[in-house]
């Protein structure tokens, strides 16, 4: 037990606008911190090895695979997860577009996919199709064939809806 205590560290991190101070083990991933400590299970684990993108969250404006980031590394940073995207029950335009185009089937890749799309549109509101494909190329989806997802992102860009 004592050894494990030693391997713990206190971090302060802002998640979806709320600041948390927690003691976490040094080998805990940000993904596990979000899911197991904060109960934000919207962020998924598809591989745990940085290869599928299901765990994508936005850290200081950039998309990251939260399974590759240690919780202690996230200390002092700002994290946005899928749970922080809709406000007061109102969906973000990207979420709405995913519904319109049905860029969703089983839904397991969806949170990560939406976060990658959000990070893209935040830094490049009018991406080309190639740029969209690039931005989500690290997010695997086995169900949709990507077309409806790409169309959803294009649609948001064309409508110029922002938030």
């Amino acid at each position: 037990m004592g050894r494990e205590e030693l391997l713990k560290k206190e971090i302060t991190v802002t998640v979806n606008g709320e600041t948390f101070t927690k003691s976490v083990s040094c080998n805990k991933t940000l993904l596990s911190f979000l899911r197991d400590d904060l109960y934000l299970t919207g962020t998924k684990e598809g591989c745990g090895e940085g290869e599928c993108g299901a765990c994508t969250v936005i850290m200081d404006g950039k998309p990251v695979n939260s399974c590759l980031v240690l919780a202690v590394e996230a200390g002092g940073h700002e994290i946005l997860t899928i749970e922080g995207l809709s406000r007061n029950g109102e969906l973000h335009p990207i979420q709405e577009a995913f519904i319109r185009h049905q860029g969703i089937q089983c839904g397991f890749c969806t949170p990560g996919m939406i976060m990658s799309a959000k990070a893209l549109l935040d830094r490049n509101p009018h991406p080309t199709e190639e740029e969209i494909k690039d931005a989500i190329s690290g997010n695997l989806c086995r169900c949709t064939g990507y077309k409806p997802i790409i169309n959803a992102v294009k649609d948001v860009a064309e409508r110029g809806e922002k938030r």
Binding site: I82, L85, L91, I99, R100, I104, G107, F108, I114
Partner: peptide
């Protein structure tokens, strides 16, 4: 008609 569980899936509410 879009999937009826779409809202749950785009918000991360859907529990697996």
């Amino acid at each position: 008609i879009p999937r009826m569980e779409s809202f749950e899936k785009v918000t991360g509410i859907a529990k697996y």
